[in-house]
């Protein structure tokens, strides 16, 4: 009989890994808590750096998992697992148990809940939205203010929920800078006459073609970049947002009216994964993501033999990195199962 691998999480990492495991001869059960596969990718419109449609990647992933060795369990929440020797038993919310030889956690991330940064008034002020809300508007092809009017000035606020001790996240979510630049370009394409500003602490454009995208935003779209984190948002009598920020490169406070402010929500370890980690004694790092066995050679493993990790449950990762990380997890699992499970 083929070894049986249980993959928890049906987003990018879980789908890619399940497909690769199946083709490597494993029998796979892919468990997803939602009713559909695809995770956050389903909510996204275009991907950086080349603005490829996220649907294309979804199609690719669906192709990956169409394999006879993969059993899909959607709409099922994993509540815990136990292991006896080298055998794992996973239990789900509706009382089922599934036995397997190895476990792959691909539980992904939660977007930071932007209402926690109360000073920005997300949910209180109309037209303060998140990066995810904007993607949803892009998907519906309906980018507009609550009044239905076209925005004339749009701000993107970097590092919402990232690099912020006040919300308990000192890490950088890494993707928000490039997402802001990508979204700024999208917005300028829809509203060429608008003016777009990014409020940033540092521009962290470290991926392939990111810096080129940044330059394109400046060169073709005149996107303005203001170094400073917005401290407070209010609404004035004309129902326009007013952002307070320090223009740190001038060394003076700056006040600016905006029609729309997009909060670049960071990434956090998913709440469900935190619960699972606590119940099953899987170690988490200071950033609460799963703690890798080794930062160079063991990012797919943790502290329990036979439990593997893939994707953004280990750290903020982009789609490219998530797919690579899922593939390396497959290599590790195959190696583990073929060499005496040590």
């Amino acid at each position: 009989m083929n070894p049986h691998v249980i993959v928890i999480g049906g987003g990018t990492a879980g789908m890619e890994a399940a497909g690769r495991l199946a083709r490597a001869g494993m029998s796979v059960t892919l468990i997803e808590k939602g009713k559909d596969l695809g995770g956050h990718l389903r909510d996204w419109y275009h991907l950086f750096p080349d603005r490829r449609s996220s649907d294309e990647v979804l199609e690719y992933l669906k192709g990956q998992i169409s394999h006879q060795n993969i059993r899909l369990l959607t709409g099922q929440q994993v509540t815990g697992f136990i292991h006896k020797g080298n055998e794992f038993t996973v239990s789900t919310g509706n009382g089922d148990t599934i036995n397997g030889d190895a476990l792959l956690l691909a539980t992904g991330f939660d977007l930071f809940k932007s209402e926690r940064k109360e000073e920005y008034g997300y949910g209180i002020y109309e037209n303060v939205i998140t990066s995810a809300d904007l993607e949803a508007m892009f998907r519906k092809k309906e980018v507009k203010l609550v009044s239905g009017k076209k925005p004339e000035r749009i701000g993107f606020l970097h590092c919402v929920g990232s690099r912020d001790e006040k919300v308990g996240n000192i890490y950088c979510s890494k993707l928000c800078c490039v997402t802001a630049v990508k979204q700024a370009i999208e917005v300028k394409k829809i509203f060429p006459a608008s003016k777009v500003f990014c409020f940033y602490m540092d521009m962290r454009m470290g991926g392939a073609l990111y810096e080129e995208l940044y330059k394109e935003a400046q060169e073709k779209y005149s996107v303005g970049f203001i170094r400073g984190k917005v401290s407070e948002v209010a609404v004035n009598i004309n129902n326009r947002l007013v952002a307070k920020v320090e223009d740190t490169l001038v060394g003076r406070p700056l006040k600016m009216e905006l029609d729309m402010l997009v909060l670049m929500a960071g990434m956090e370890m998913s709440e469900d994964a935190v619960r699972l980690a606590k119940e099953t004694n899987l170690q988490m790092g200071e950033n609460r993501f799963f703690k890798p066995a080794d930062h160079h050679f063991g990012t797919n493993m943790g502290n329990v033999n036979g439990v593997f990790y893939a994707g953004a449950c280990t750290a903020p990762l982009n789609i490219t990195e998530t797919i690579s990380h899922a593939r390396s997890a497959v290599t590790e699992i195959v190696n583990y199962l073929n060499t005496g499970r040590k």
């Binding site: 008034g121 209180i124 002020y125 109309e126 609404v235």
Partner: peptide
């Protein structure tokens, strides 16, 4: 300001 949301905060 959306009053019901403001209520949620406090």
């Amino acid at each position: 300001m959306k009053q019901e949301e403001n209520t949620r905060v406090w």
